[in-house]
């Protein structure tokens, strides 16, 4: 149990890594700035793209951190977001969409999350196998709902696009990370989650309603999944049954890179945020550096993404562990 060991040092290291990454890849992308105006303009669109691209991941990283803190895990997030999107996509894209499809999407998200929570809390099914099962099950439901179609009602819903552009996602993320984050951070609720992750049985004896908390955390993920579905569909304007495959691993890698312990009992939301950004910058950077890669590498630059992602995760966690031990010593 080390919830109180706020790993501030780690987050600074992650921030440093992030800046280093941005600098390296800006250099590799071959962009040259002639003036200060050029520079700000470039980074404005760079940051804007980066944030809008990674909104679904950022949203789910928040929930994933909390669930990992309780020593749980949620592998079903990708299928969950896709299913919410698929169900919303079955409605025609007009003004009515706002008060038919969207509330139904919210209800679906909450239900799917609650179902995960119920299986974990009430039936005592281990979280990894529960959510592995629901991952397959929800994905299957996507195909039942959508068949082989790609549907795009979102593009004609008035005002919907706002949810996928920069101002929309920054409101969503701001509310979550700047208002929700500190609120959660100071809450007794979060400390109870830490305690559950540290020792579940002890937590129960300490009077923490373990079942209720478990249900709450998984349902929260369902809610975040709904938000992610909104921003995903608004940005990409369509969804099909196979969308967002592999999303769960993306979220988990980011959260783990952010310093959250997979065995529970430790983790920070800011770390998760930085973890997501680190990976987004890496991917974005390699996308932009393909000309450099063609010139200097004996193999395709896209292979390097795998290598860097693995190395980043390992080195990131290793360095911050060391720094963490130093700072405690």
């Amino acid at each position: 149990m080390n919830w109180h060991e706020a790993p501030d040092m780690r987050n600074w290291i992650l921030l440093l890594l992030l800046l280093l990454e941005i600098a390296t890849f800006t250099f590799l992308s071959g962009v040259r700035f002639d003036s200060a105006g050029d520079f700000t303009a470039y980074f404005q669109s760079y940051l804007g793209d980066l944030i809008t691209q990674s909104t679904p991941t950022l949203l789910l990283a928040f929930g994933m951190t909390l669930v990992l803190i309780t020593a749980g895990i949620d592998l079903s997030v990708g299928s969950m977001v896709a299913l919410v999107g698929c169900i919303m996509a079955s409605f025609p894209g007009n003004t009515e969409f706002w008060w038919t499809a969207v509330p139904l999407g919210l209800l679906t998200g909450l239900t799917l999350g609650f179902l995960n929570g119920a299986l974990v809390a009430w039936l005592d099914v281990p979280p990894i196998i529960t959510t592995l099962g629901t991952m397959i099950f929800y994905r299957g439901l996507c195909f039942v709902v959508m068949g082989d179609l790609e549907k795009a009602p979102f593009i004609t819903v008035p005002g919907y696009e706002w949810l996928g552009i920069f101002s929309g996602v920054i409101v969503m993320l701001g509310l979550l990370y700047l208002i929700g984050g500190p609120y959660v951070y100071h809450s007794r609720w979060l400390r109870e989650l830490f305690m559950m992750g540290g020792n579940r049985i002890a937590a129960r004896y300490a009077g923490i309603p373990v079942q209720r908390r478990t249900l709450q955390v998984y349902t929260l993920i369902g809610f975040l999944g709904f938000l992610a579905a909104l921003s995903f569909t608004a940005r990409n304007s369509s969804i099909s049954a196979g969308s967002l495959q592999g999303f769960e691993l993306q979220v988990i890698v980011a959260v783990v890179l952010g310093g959250t312990r997979v065995q529970g009992g430790s983790g920070t939301l800011l770390g998760a945020f930085l973890g997501v950004m680190l990976i987004a910058v890496l991917e974005e950077g390699l996308r932009g550096a393909s000309i450099w890669g063609d010139t200097y590498l004996p193999f395709e630059i896209s292979h390097l993404e795998y290598i860097f992602l693995g190395a980043l995760l390992l080195i990131g966690v290793w360095v911050s562990n060391i720094a963490h031990q130093r700072s405690r010593a």
Partner: peptide, 20 residues
């Protein structure tokens, strides 16, 4: 470092290695 993290890092890393 916990095995899950090392092998989670290995998941993309070895894939890249295979391709290279």
């Amino acid at each position: 470092i916990p095995a899950i993290i090392v092998t989670l890092a290995g998941l993309p890393f070895y894939r890249g290695l295979a391709l290279i």
